[in-house]
Design a protein around this nucleic acid. Structure first.
Lengths: 214, 214
DNA sequence: CGATAAATTGACCGGTTGGTAAAACCTTAC
DNA sequence: GTAAGGTTTTACCAACCGGTCAATTTATCG
């Protein structure tokens, strides 16, 4: 016995495997239906196990969701953390856009999980938003402001700049169905590069210091 | 009797009022929890009536949802329809951005209803996306392409341009909680104007034909 | 092997879900 | 007023929800 108490001490091979399988399935379901719209049965089915079996590894539906959110939030902020104050502004912004776009391509379910959570009022992660996230954004906004003051980029509201990078890049994951519908289901491979090229140009032109025509 | 059959022929004063009240309440609930996460009881409560009473006016939960989506889709496409091929490119784009941003400010629930639907795979409106929406976007993309060829704006992928305007403007409705958390709950009034000024500058600078420095 | 703990299952629980039936209640038009 | 039709409510249903429990099966290890 000692099923869930032992988890904090030692983990079995089976525990490791099954928990991973559950989280994988839960990511599918939660990202597609939101927290309230998802059911444990659905997740258990997708994970190939019975509902009581799933609840043997995670006490509640909320525990599964929490674990997914915690994991996601960490990796989600990585690109912004990498934003380097000492780097070249243009290439920093360019690589930030690219990294965020790659995340939309490679982890669309995580993006939708996050979008669902925010859309529904962020009931589970409000503290993370007003705490760590705000602190990080405040810090990077200061960096951008410094660049602008030094004349390295055009003056602009750094917060709205960050918002616009977030929204444009995440759009390709969160609104994937719409993007597909509008572009037609073809253009599968080129789509990512097209978007990357367009966004880089938009932001870098938009931020370039205006040349004085002499 | 003849409760729901008569609705297509003649509508009572009470019918008109109650249906409106239901849709108003349903917009609150569906936009906050998505289709599956919302319950009829919740909507009925918010509308100040009993569940069977609600189901007297709308046969099913899906019927309420459908009605909301149909209404929303119509008004949602209005700004893009107003995009005028014969107008001045710069002011057309500027006013499109502003109109979309105003919709995020004035109809955030409608925006979230739409976002929820798309996020969950657009099960109820796939046909509208691949049909009318795609046709409209195709048409306007052609307009943008013509402007670019005439040298009135910089060359860019018109589809991704439209996507980026959609995503940046709708972000302020759909991710409102996050925006509030990052900016702090103050700055209530100025927020809209700040966003509008930033976005107009971003897009208009990003689309300006590059001046040759002589 | 055998024993001990871990993993899995089926049966079940109280509450909620979307939806129905019929009776009671109101409005309206004559 | 009154009768016919529109509206609302009470009681109810089967299916499903998140979660528990005891019993069974399986893996681990000396």
């Amino acid at each position: 016995m000692i099923p869930r108490a032992a988890k904090t001490q030692r983990r079995t091979r089976i525990q490791e495997e099954k928990e991973e399988k559950i989280l994988e399935a839960a990511l599918d379901v939660f990202s597609a239906y939101g927290f309230r719209g998802a059911t444990i049965d659905q997740i258990a089915d997708a994970a190939g196990m019975s509902k009581p079996n799933l609840l043997y590894y995670f006490r509640t539906k909320e525990a599964v969701h929490r674990t997914l959110l915690d994991r996601m939030l960490f990796t989600w902020l990585e690109p912004l953390k990498a934003f380097d104050a000492d780097g070249d502004p243009e290439s920093e912004i360019r690589s930030y856009i690219r990294r965020k776009l790659e995340m939309s391509r490679d982890f669309p379910r995580e993006s939708r999980l996050f979008a669902n959570e925010i859309l529904q009022g962020a009931p589970h992660i409000e503290d993370e938003l007003t705490g760590p996230l705000k602190a990080l954004v405040d810090e990077k906004a200061q960096v951008i402001r410094t660049w602008a003051k030094a004349g390295k980029i055009a003056k602009c509201d750094p917060y709205h700049l960050i918002f616009s990078i977030w929204s444009t890049t995440q759009h390709y994951a969160d609104f994937d169905v719409q993007v597909r519908a509008v572009l037609g289901n073809n253009a599968g491979e080129g789509r990512f590069e097209d978007a990357a090229r367009y966004l880089e140009e938009l932001f870098l032109r938009g931020l370039k210091v205006e040349k004085v025509i002499s």
